[in-house]
């Protein structure tokens, strides 16, 4: 995937507003006949990978498959963890995601505010230029970016992952649209109160932009955490690999050991899953927060 996007993010989904608060006490709805098999099909791959991850290597290589293992082999996770530097993978992914989230929040906020509120020389032209890059797929820039990162001496390092992704045009665009929707009088009041442009951004605009900042942070985090192609191209040393690349390396070295492979896979997905469950609530709270109207 090229650019992280979520056009729906201009109106984040409000789960509380969806009609499920007070279920009607129907004994049965035909929709269950559709939704139960669907849910089963959606969950089956994950459930099956968890089951396999707890089986012995012999049980995993059996047909018909062992659907319920007689004993649970949690040591598979320990083996998986030790067979490749999974600690590094997690750390690298965390650094990659955290640094790009921080970079995007900071640089996109500054630029978005400038494009939303400051009339400066060349701003329209530059903004159009940025929008054009939004339409170009990642594949077009991948080779030159590789050469640039190599020139910077950042090949095969986490820095090489982070630096090209510190600031995305999508973030600038998303934040600018939001900033434009804030009442300009608040900023004028702050200017009269003696606040500098920087103070206005940090003390007035950003505190009022929590929902959209959360949206940007979540999307960027998810994108960096699951990024594969860019790490695949610039990282060769396992110690410098982020999680998804590490998982792929792990796959290459354990082709037929499905129980270990599944243990590694499950392990790698847990943090993002946790963040997702947490982020669902965040969105809702953010909406409640912007509900404040003057």
């Amino acid at each position: 995937m090229a650019t992280p996007t979520l056009i729906g993010a201009d109106r984040p989904l409000d789960f509380e507003a969806l009609p499920d608060k007070r279920p009607r006490h129907w004994p049965f709805s035909p929709w269950h006949l559709f939704l139960i098999p669907l849910s089963a099909a959606m969950l089956l791959p994950l459930v099956w990978s968890v089951i396999t991850s707890l089986e012995t290597s012999a049980d995993a290589q059996r047909f018909p498959p062992v659907l319920l293992p007689s004993s649970l082999h949690f040591e598979n996770y320990v083996h998986a963890w030790n067979s490749l530097p999974f600690g590094h993978f997690f750390l690298n992914s965390f650094l990659y995601a955290a640094a790009t989230v921080a970079g995007n929040l900071l640089f996109c906020s500054l630029a978005a505010y400038a494009f939303a509120r400051l009339r400066f020389f060349g701003s329209n032209l530059v903004f159009v230029l940025l929008l054009v890059t939004l339409m170009v797929p990642f594949q077009v820039v991948i080779i030159p970016t590789f050469l640039i990162v190599r020139k910077l001496g950042l090949i095969d390092s986490v820095g090489g992952l982070i630096v090209p992704n510190l600031c995305g045009v999508f973030g600038i665009f998303l934040l600018r649209q939001f900033f434009l929707s804030l009442p300009v009088q608040l900023e004028e009041a702050a200017r009269i109160d003696g606040a500098s442009r920087l103070a206005i951004l940090f003390k007035i605009v950003l505190p009022l932009s929590a929902p959209v900042l959360a949206t940007l942070a979540i999307i960027q985090f998810m994108w960096s955490w699951n990024d594969f192609l860019w790490p695949l191209i610039i990282i060769t040393t396992p110690q410098h690999a982020p999680l998804q690349l590490g998982l792929s390396m792990f796959q290459g070295s354990h082709v037929t050991q499905w129980n270990l492979l599944m243990a590694g896979t499950v392990m790698s997905q847990i943090p993002m899953l946790a963040v997702f469950l947490f982020a669902q609530r965040w969105f809702i709270q953010s909406i409640a927060y912007t509900g404040i109207k003057q």
Binding site: L38, S39, M42, L43, P45, L46, W48, S49, T52, M222, W225, N226, F228, L243, Q244, L245, L247, S248, Q251, W258, L261, M262, T265, S268, Q269, M272, L273, V275, F276
Partner: peptide, 19 residues
């Protein structure tokens, strides 16, 4: 159940389906 695969990485999805 429908949302969970969204946060499953493409690499993990590939490995799981391979299995």
């Amino acid at each position: 159940a429908v949302f969970v695969p969204v946060v499953t990485s493409t690499v993990a999805t590939g490995i799981i389906f391979l299995w």
